[in-house]
Design a protein around this nucleic acid. Structure first.
Lengths: 256, 256
DNA sequence: AGGGCTAGTCGTACAGTGTACGACAAGAAA
DNA sequence: TTTCTTGTCGTACACTGTACGACTAGCCCT
């Protein structure tokens, strides 16, 4: 499942993200201790523990000992809640990233690995469609800032700096998504990736025509055997990151 | 929204994908003309026209003038239907791809552009989580075959050939996903990307601390201005593809 | 021709979703 | 004490995938 964010009035969303209003609540009933932060923290904890699918308004309200509709006092809709969750989780990036003392390449690699670690901690981040209109809160901007710093001083202009960071970030997200999908598939079916591949490969062998797919016939089994699956995201991450950095090096240094 | 595929018994899925059984129906009632192909074609048409969100079993059944439960005669569950849709749509790849007469780089670029075109025709493909356990039907294998042929004869071993194709494919999918998310956001909010950016940028300007985000302060506005949005997927595609091919060239040719 | 069986059709029901609406009550202000 | 504001939350609506079981149309066999 993927959920949409970026609905709703931009001004409203931004003031929520930066906690501009936080109305210092006055008259209210039982659920005295509630606040935007408490709601968001509970939502993040729930998503971490049981996946994004478990984050329904009713369930979240139950976790907070509150009626479902009470949440709407603190958050205009679920889409905005997701924005807040994303920004909150991305705020952890700074703690996972240590730039080190190397050049831009070492820094950019560290950015990619920190991102990867972030997605391992909060896999549900990859199921929220944040591409188009990211929630421009403190967490998102912190990550963006550190990513840009990694490619600063390389002689690239501003537009290229942004493009390089976006490229690396997109690569990491896409590859990490592979892990999420595999875990989801394992949980949904009760069959591990290796078991699935072992069940699939022999049937597939008999079903398809080697003359129609000669290159697949040659390459597929070797690759499948090497990763014991149709796809190994961790391998793909290491391989892709090296290629990507080589390609960026051509742009930055004029050669690899 | 993202839907899960790869549920269900692999053997059953494969025989559906390759249409191994197609039981030559005997005794039945009103909906005589139905078949797996007709169901899948209708589902693809519906997803093309109104998005993956419109593809519910009830709606699809209505389009086919049939009761909702009738679909389960032809397809074990919605997950398998999605597998069939994906494989069917990916089968169009061959028609979009012309390898040309250049070297591996030109071929690989053509693969990437054909993939991009495929995702433009069937954006819902990007909302189906196919990463982990792809539906290994004729469509998927056709695309895989052509992709591998593009990097054949480069001296790369089988595992590397697979890794290169996967890397390019993942890049295209990730970037195309940006387009899908933007279109979805526009439809959900009624606000275009440019309008959203114009509403967001000035508020953001006032809300955040330039000393805390110095690099963002310098880069963000320039990049934002250049693309009239927080993110321009088409630009990202051209930029990223060039970097990626440069990086692969380092592996293949030993230099760019 | 008649009986039995198989296999395709599909109405109903269930547990779940986000959230609009309106009733209620608790505290602050008059 | 009365009035007003503001947070709480029960109910309802339209929607999802699909399990279950009733119904029936057509084929095969006698």
């Amino acid at each position: 499942m993927t959920e949409i964010t970026g609905t709703g009035d931009p001004a409203r969303s931004l003031s929520l993200l930066w906690r501009l209003v936080e109305p210092a609540p006055r008259g209210r009933g039982a659920a005295a201790g509630l606040s935007v932060d408490r709601v968001v923290d509970a939502a993040v904890a729930l998503a971490d523990a049981e996946g994004l699918g478990a984050v329904s308004m009713r369930r979240l309200a139950t976790d907070l000992d509150v009626g479902a509709m009470t949440l709407y006092t603190y958050v205009p809709a679920k889409a905005e809640l997701l924005d807040l969750m994303v920004d909150s989780a991305l705020g952890e990036f700074a703690a996972l990233y240590t730039p080190g003392t190397g050049g831009w390449r070492a820094r950019l690699e560290a950015v990619a690995r920190a991102s990867w670690a972030l997605y391992e901690r909060h896999p549900w981040l990859l199921l929220v469609a944040a591409s188009g209109r990211p929630p421009l809160g403190p967490g998102v901007l912190t990550k963006y800032e550190l990513g840009l710093q990694a490619v600063d001083g390389t002689g690239l202009d501003e537009v290229a700096m942004d493009a390089v960071f976006t490229l690396v970030e997109g690569f990491v997200a896409g590859t990490a998504r592979g892990v999420v999908d595999q875990v989801a598939a394992e949980e949904a079916t009760g069959i591990t990736e290796t078991e699935w591949w072992e069940a699939t490969a022999p049937i597939l062998d008999r079903v398809f025509d080697p003359e129609r797919f000669p290159t697949v016939t040659r390459v597929g089994p070797v690759a499948g055997e090497a990763q014991q699956a149709a796809y190994d995201p961790r391998r793909a991450f290491e391989f892709g990151l090296a290629r990507l950095l080589d390609g960026i090096a051509v742009l930055v240094d004029g050669a690899a």
